[in-house]
Design a protein around this nucleic acid. Structure first.
Length: 832
DNA sequence: CACTCATTCCTTTTT
DNA sequence: GGAATGAGTG
């Protein structure tokens, strides 16, 4: 133990010397134990607010302090934000110098992307191209639709969304298309298996991988290729995984393969097993729907025998009342290992629970509550806007809150990191860039080939599309052939105009590729252009982005439009250039795991000094970065604004004052638990996560009426509210009604037997308060008489069950109509 | 071929 | 209430 001295002297530019603490300063005994543990597997069960991030960053600093080279340390998180924060905290302890060189702190997905780029060809993963693009969910959808249509199936029978989610589930279980097909026995599964195969083919043909592939392919590569596995194991001797409760099977496989079995060379007396440290909290597992497997954390000691376990139960964040409420609630979960949750903090104020009239009233209540908090003198002093947050279960709930904040002039930010990159103009610009990076990307190609309109219309494209596969041509190959050889040479009969347009387009693409390619005629060595936009070096990424925006015609297109949104789009495009420039400036090849060489497991040292990396490499890295951003990544507490976000995005954060809206049955817990009761406990954990984000004050609200898709529905108070100890709560009913039952959690919500019958749920009548509300949830069967708001009285002739259930109904005036029960506002008159 | 307007279909959560 | 198709027109 020699930490302190070493740590303090070796770093000249630690920002604030006064701030450079001893690594063990102010730690509790269990925290210090976790920091001190270096060799062998370690499980840290870290309750909310237990100083987890602090422990992790100090532990890394301690490892380095013990003489372990930083480049041997790999820390994995789920979001870029968490990675950035962890990295920053380590650097604060150790300084950004030689001591931390090569330290790898990144997300699972980003690590996998880098490993696949570096090793994909060595491992010979079938169909994986070195230039592969990462397809986000919108891209996946395009490929999926094509796959389904290519099999002559209807997207109405095989909804791309749900097929994708089944495939995703399979991939999370490490099943590939062949393995999935092998265990598919009924018709539905066999069909999904076929679609799976076609989807994979389409994805690979476009040189793409989806999010799940990043994990699956990496797991496979590590499992099957000894060379890659050894290289990684040799490089990363110390593995650390945050939010371990959220890992799925693929991530577990990756972690195990990276950890290996022994922790270094045999015979060195290390018998404890690999140096893998995982940190998590089973009570905060909220990604079950994405394949997270709680048994990874619950069975850690089985997977890594001899593991030490340290529980961090003391909470340093919240008041006693908040902790008491959270603890009481989470105890209702039965599938759970109890872990003591306690705090030495002040008792604090009671938790406010307010029943509101509707969502607009609810938003106003939240606003008032925040304003009142700004005058609070109590614990934490007067909070600023940035110390406040609103959480909700679904994104759809944010709109009303946003509106209220906007019109009240209260600053707010919505945590939607992906939103910027989902915008039409940005997707267009990125589409072009993606083609430059990977010409096979036909999803991007089809997106932008006629955006802005350049005379390559549907009819021409259809002809080319029809001809391409028969000739073994990719889409871009066909375009090239059409352009150079003339359409006739590949059996495509195009108008001269279309051919010209295609030629021109291809020439433009070529120009960009010359910029991106190293050593091309406008390569990195050329002199700087003091162009109008000026300042940057030829061969820079930002220049490429700017060129693409201009020469693609996107700029002109949005300039021509004179609506407000067009102006905004132009601004966004220049924002994209800025983001590229920023990326370029901070691009650090040293931090890039792909550059570690297997034969020389040394840190890359100063090999990559200077700007020798070419634009294409940087473009790949940039696109990768841009596709792997998460909602939570955009949260920047430096902004003086209230933060609005989903409960999922809130994990890992803390705020002085928190308001949670929509504590209603069918929202939190979500409606899906009616069909899948086993998901209730995850919903409760989600609520637990929300509550435990609050340091001083917590407000929980719900509304009596809430509109869904414009239709107001009567809401029922969330059962979770009923689970809070009454003495910790200060409840008030401002709904303007006084009905019994409103305060009580619903028991009316038990799963409805689905059988052959179909439930006409919700029955959303006009705003009148007739007793027919009770018709909701009843079974509609053939023979029943119903009333439709437009069509009048009708008789049910037949029903089809399942999701999106429909009924054929014969109306007196309009004849037989097929209606989707969920949306047709049917009123049951007689069960027949 | 491009643009506008009507119709349809949804809404968990996200790397 | 809104995005994403599709039909119809210039």
């Amino acid at each position: 133990m020699h930490t302190e001295v070493e740590l303090q002297d070796s770093h000249a530019h630690a920002p604030e010397p006064a701030d450079a603490p001893s690594i063990f300063d102010g730690l509790t005994e269990p925290q210090a134990r976790a920091v001190r543990h270096t060799e062998g597997p370690l499980l840290v069960l870290a309750g909310p607010g237990s100083g987890k991030t602090r422990v992790i960053s100090r532990r890394i600093a301690h490892l380095v302090g013990c003489g372990i080279p930083a480049w041997q340390v790999l820390a994995l998180t789920f979001t870029n934000k968490a990675a950035a924060e962890m990295r920053e905290r380590v650097l604060r302890l150790l300084g950004d110098g030689a001591a931390t060189r090569g330290l790898t702190v990144t997300t699972f997905h980003a690590l996998c992307a880098r490993l696949l780029r570096r090793w994909g060809d060595v491992a010979q993963l079938p169909g994986l191209k070195p230039d592969f693009a990462i397809f986000d969910s919108a891209d996946q959808m395009v490929v999926m639709k094509k796959a389904i249509e290519g099999l002559s199936l209807a997207t109405s029978n095989w909804p791309p969304r749900s097929v994708l989610s089944r495939i995703s589930a399979a991939k999370n279980e490490l099943l590939d298309a062949a393995a999935f097909a092998a265990q598919a026995h009924d018709f539905a599964n066999k069909t999904v298996a076929k679609i799976f195969t076609a989807y994979e083919r389409g994805l690979r043909a476009a040189g793409g991988v989806d999010f799940d592939d990043l994990l699956v392919l990496t797991a496979r590569m590590l499992r099957e290729n000894a060379q890659v596995r050894q290289a990684c194991q040799e490089r990363w001797q110390y593995l650390l995984i945050d939010e371990y409760q959220d890992t799925n099977r693929a991530q577990f496989a990756i972690a195990s393969l990276l950890a290996g079995t022994g922790g270094g060379v045999a015979g060195e007396g290390r018998t404890q097993g690999p140096n893998i440290c995982v940190v998590g909290d089973p009570d905060q597992s909220i990604y079950g729907w994405r394949g997270a497997d709680l048994s990874n954390i619950l069975d850690f000691e089985k997977a890594f025998p001899g593991a030490s376990v340290i529980a961090l139960g003391e909470n340093f964040r919240s008041t006693q009342r908040i902790i008491g409420a959270a603890d009481a609630m989470i105890r209702k979960n039965t599938q759970r290992k109890h872990k003591a949750l306690f705090t030495a903090n002040p008792v604090g104020e009671k938790i406010d629970v307010i029943h509101c009239r509707d969502e607009h009233h609810e938003a106003a209540v939240v606003l008032d509550w925040f304003r009142a908090r700004r005058e609070d003198e109590g614990g934490g002093g007067k909070p600023a806007w940035k110390d406040m947050a609103v959480f909700y279960r679904t994104n759809a709930l944010s709109r009303v809150v946003e509106d209220a904040f906007r019109s009240a002039g209260v600053p707010y930010v919505v945590a939607r990191g992906t939103a910027f990159y989902q915008r039409e103009e940005i997707k267009n610009a990125l589409g072009y860039l993606r083609i430059v990076a990977n010409p096979d990307d036909d999803v991007s190609l089809e997106r932008v080939i006629n955006t802005p309109a350049r005379g390559i219309g549907d009819t021409s494209l259809e002809k080319i599309r029809a001809a391409a596969p028969g000739r073994g041509l990719t889409f871009i190959g066909a375009l090239l052939a059409v352009g150079t050889g003339g359409g006739a040479s590949v059996g495509v009969d195009l108008t001269a105009r279309a051919q010209n347009a295609i030629n021109k387009f291809m020439a433009t693409l070529d120009g960009w590729r010359d910029v991106a390619k190293p050593g091309a005629f406008m390569g990195a060595d050329a002199a700087p252009t003091p162009g109008a936009g000026g300042g940057y070096v030829v061969g820079s990424l930002a220049e490429l982005v700017e060129r693409v925006i201009r020469e693609s015609g996107l700029e002109a297109m949005y300039k021509a439009g004179r609506t407000e949104s067009d102006e905004e789009r132009l601004l966004n495009l220049s924002e994209l250039v800025t983001s590229a420039r920023e990326f370029e400036e901070t691009y650090d090849p040293d931090a890039d795991p792909i550059l570690s060489d297997p034969r020389t497991p040394q840190p890359p040292a100063s090999v990559n000094e200077g700007r020798s990396h070419d634009v294409l490499t940087m473009l790949h890295a940039y696109l990768e970065r841009v596709t792997l951003v998460a909602d939570a990544d955009s949260i920047d507490p430096a902004q003086g604004a209230v933060t609005l976000m989903t409960l999922h995005a809130a994990k890992g954060l803390e705020f002085g004052c928190v308001a949670m809206v929509g504590l209603e049955e069918r929202i939190l817990p979500h409606a899906r638990v009616a069909e899948m009761p086993e998901q209730l406990e995850e919903e409760r954990r989600l609520c637990f996560v929300g509550i435990t984000r609050a340091m001083h004050r917590l407000l929980l609200t719900n509304a009596k009426y809430r509109s869904f898709r414009g239709v107001p529905e009567r809401q029922i108070s969330s059962r979770f509210l009923g689970e809070l100890p009454p003495d910790l709560v200060s409840a008030s009913d401002q709904s303007g009604y006084d009905e019994p039952g409103w305060d009580r959690p619903s028991i009316d919500f038990a799963p409805i037997a689905r059988q052959a019958g179909v439930t006409a749920r919700g029955s959303n009548w006009s705003s009148s308060d007739k007793p027919r509300a009770r018709a909701g949830g009843r079974v509609i069967a053939p023979g029943a008489t119903v009333r439709h708001p437009q069509f009048g009285i009708g008789r049910v002739e037949g029903v089809t069950g399942g999701n999106g259930a429909r009924a054929q109904i014969r109306f007196r005036d309009v004849g037989v109509k097929t209606l989707v029960l969920e949306y047709a506002r049917l009123e049951l008159i007689d069960e027949g």
